[in-house]
């Protein structure tokens, strides 16, 4: 096993190359997950803000007809 990791004296170079390959691709795979979550989060927050604002407007002027009704 030690011989396998030694790679005939080139172990440091070989394993560094494989590590770069793995790290960069894992980072690449995680980026869209994180992007998707943040986008959906932002949209949900905006929708909540809009609905509370509309609610507040309705409370202030109860006689105005609701255009969405």
């Amino acid at each position: 096993m030690a011989e396998f990791f030694h790679m005939g004296g080139y172990g440091a170079y070989v394993w560094a190359a494989y590590a770069v390959f793995a790290i960069v691709l894992v980072a690449d795979a995680l980026t869209p997950l994180w992007q998707r979550r943040r986008t959906l989060h932002d949209i949900a927050a905006r929708l909540r803000r809009e609905s509370t604002r509309d609610g507040a407007r309705k409370n202030r002027a109860p006689t105005t007809q609701d255009p969405t009704a």
Binding site: M7, G8, G9, Y10, Y13, V14, A17, Y18
Partner: peptide, 8 residues
């Protein structure tokens, strides 16, 4: 020629 280094 390159031994195990070729595995890269």
């Amino acid at each position: 020629q390159q031994g195990d280094s070729f595995r890269m």
